[in-house]
């Protein structure tokens, strides 16, 4: 989703104001007039400046009715394809599923399910998807779990 620069500029300014106000609550260093708030405040000022320039730029483009930047919000070509939207959502949901399930279900089952689903969705045959998911899960478990000694969760099923 593409936003006109003016909208991004407004967002940056709002973010900068909130960030500066919050940073001002930080204490100063002992015996000094400054402290941990100084640097975030400078960053906030910089972001607000960038936001102001982007607003001017966005409005100028809109005023000129240019092809790019003319609309306040425009969608990329991919949004028009249902397949692309589904694929996009599936990748994000897969990561969310990993975050929510891996500790309870275990790494092996979680990874296998994610891989099998994505392999199949991206156009591989059922058999290729299953075999590919099993091999990849096994190889990753071996590389990280056994070789690099990463404590991959085993979950309630011990896998």
């Amino acid at each position: 989703m593409k936003f006109n620069d003016a909208i991004i500029g407004v967002f940056l300014i709002i973010f900068a104001i909130i960030e500066i106000l919050y940073a001002r609550t930080f204490p100063t260093l002992f015996g000094q007039q400054f402290g941990p708030s100084e640097f975030p405040i400078l960053i906030g000022i910089g972001l607000a400046f960038c936001g102001a320039v982007l607003i001017m730029r966005g409005l100028r483009l809109r005023y000129k009715n240019a092809i790019v930047g003319g609309a306040l919000v425009s969608v990329g070509e991919w949004i028009e394809s249902n397949a692309a939207i589904t694929n996009f959502a599936l990748v994000l949901l897969s990561i969310l599923f990993f975050i929510l399930a891996v500790d309870d279900v275990g790494f092996v089952i979680t990874s296998f399910l994610i891989l099998a689903l994505l392999f199949k969705r991206f156009g591989n045959s059922f058999a290729t998807s299953m075999i590919g998911a099993a091999i990849m899960t096994g190889a990753t478990k071996y590389l990280f779990g056994f070789w690099l000694l990463v404590p991959l969760p085993v979950g309630q099923f011990g896998l």
């Binding site: 990874s111 994610i114 994505l118 590919g132 990849m136 990753t140 991959l152």
Partner: peptide
Amino acid sequence: MLMPAILLFCLV
């Protein structure tokens, strides 16, 4: 075939 494998690598 590559992209799901890369995703798993990123997760781990």
